[in-house]
Amino acid sequence: MDFNTSMMIAASGLRTQSERMKTITENIANASSTSQVAGGDPYRRKVATIHSNFHRDLNATLVEAGNPSPDLSDFRKQYDPGNPAADKTGYVKMPNVNSLIEIMDMREAQRSYEADLTVMDSTKSMLARTIDLLRR
């Protein structure tokens, strides 16, 4: 049944977007996680990766989330000598998380998720229409 394939594809999209959402949430939650030791590195931002792979069984291009890759940009530095994570000069390394970017990413993931849901809804109603032919 071809409609089931459409459903599976949309479901793979939903799964991927929620996986991406997980990474974004992780970043936002850890936006101010500093190191446990003095002068050490804080939480490093993760970037969600998405790639498509061809499913032979379904003869369709599904989408899946890859392993999140670390963001190698520089950490922010904040002057806070009283902090236990501060180095000798009194600076604390803060995570390289920009909450504005994370919120934008989150919005994008939400939009894609909604689009996948719409496709699923529409496929479902087409399937229901076909089954309805039996009732006439």
Binding site: I9, T16, I50, T61, T118, V119, T123
Partner: peptide, 15 residues
């Protein structure tokens, strides 16, 4: 066609 379109939407963020 629905099948092809759902592939497009699912891959809307694939580079």
């Amino acid at each position: 066609r629905q099948n092809v379109l759902s592939q497009n939407v699912a891959n809307a963020d694939t580079p």
